[in-house]
Design a binder for these strands. Structure first.
Length: 323
DNA sequence: CGCGATTCTCGTCACCGTAT
DNA sequence: ATACGGTGACGAGAATCGCG
């Protein structure tokens, strides 16, 4: 299914619904689509952005054009009129899109999950908003922004980024729980906390090593003397120092060309690291979004059921009166 | 238990929209 | 114009499932 099909369904839907008194619209539902009997006052309008506004009694539902597979639900009042409503549903496994290019074009036009969800939530307070960059599991760092200024790599593949705010970011690609970068708070405590690691560094040769304590961290980075700042990683438990790999270091004494190459490499590493994080975050939001959609489906199905029952009761009353 | 199929997860790339 | 973030697509590897 692609957008053309779904928009076609949408427009036929609009026709059938805005015509109001008209009888059945003949949009043929896909065989797989489950027909749902549904009777209620519904009005639909498709906005230019692909947002379909569904007016339910006492509720307005905005359905954004996500990956849409037209799942027709038939509003059907036996003997009176048959109206078909195409509702949207997430396109799942049965998607038969072979033209990836088309799909890509379609998908790339979608706004972000956060946007979609927030739009939804503005309509119905039941839908939780995706919070703006507020990671509850993230340890608060200092007030200053955490723009990485130096990135170092350990022999085990772990990345350490020391940011301008003197926060330390640990990126451990293989750790599932921490999922990559950890932001470690840097305290000014003169004594290390039990289990805390110590970061020592000498920004300039000859400087006395700076000690930074990392709460809950597992590393000790210690500056060495000499022109090139050297760092050691130590686990507080084992006390074993990992070998040192300097992916890039401030003030290294290399030729300009190799410096440039290193700069490029460093930039690439930073970009990849950020992108990795972004992908992680994106997936998290996507999951949240899908969960919300599923909740909405449940709610709407419930509503549907209630309305059907209500209609049935009203019909009964009407029939009795007519007799 | 072994093996193939399916699903899940993650990293990377490419692209787009937005901010500066 | 450029940098940057968000996100879909894609591929690889891990995990899980189902079957003989």
């Amino acid at each position: 299914m692609d957008s053309s099909v779904s928009s076609q369904l949408d427009s036929s839907l609009n026709d059938s619904l805005t015509d109001g008194e008209e009888n059945q619209s003949e949009t043929s539902p896909s065989p797989a689509a489950a027909a749902q009997v549904h009777t209620c006052a519904v009005s639909l309008a498709e906005e230019s952005s692909g947002v379909t506004v569904v007016q339910l009694p006492g509720q307005t539902v905005q359905i954004q054009g996500v990956i849409q597979a037209p799942q027709t639900s038939v509003i059907q009042s036996p003997q009176v009129q048959t109206v078909q409503i195409a509702t949207v549903a997430e396109l799942e496994d049965d998607e038969s899109v072979t033209d990836t290019q088309k799909r890509r074009e379609l998908l790339s036009r979608r706004p972000s999950y956060r946007k979609i969800l927030n739009e939804l939530s503005s309509d119905s307070p039941a839908v939780p908003k995706i919070e703006e960059e507020k990671m509850e599991d993230e340890v608060p760092v200092s007030n200053s922004p955490t723009v990485p200024t130096s990135i170092y790599q350990t022999s085990s593949g772990q990345y350490i980024a020391i940011t301008q705010g003197r926060a330390i970011q640990l990126s451990s690609p293989g750790v599932p729980g921490l999922q990559g970068v950890q932001n470690l708070p840097v305290t000014s405590s003169p004594t290390p906390q039990p289990g805390a690691a110590v970061l020592q560094c000498a920004a300039q040769p000859g400087d006395s090593p700076q000690q930074l304590f990392i709460q809950g961290g597992q590393v000790l980075i210690q500056a060495a003397t000499g022109d090139i700042p050297a760092y050691q990683l130590r686990s507080p438990n084992s006390g074993l120092a990992q070998s040192i790999v300097m992916a890039a270091s401030p003030g290294s004494m290399q030729s300009p060309s190799s410096q440039h190459a290193e700069e490029i490499t460093r930039k690439r590493e930073v970009r990849l690291m950020k992108n990795r994080e972004a992908a992680r975050e994106c997936r998290r939001k996507k999951k949240e979004y899908v969960k919300c959609l599923e909740n909405r489906v449940a709610v709407l199905e419930n509503q549907n059921k209630t309305l059907i029952e209500e209609l049935k009761a009203l019909k009964d009353i009407y029939c009795h009166k007519a007799e």
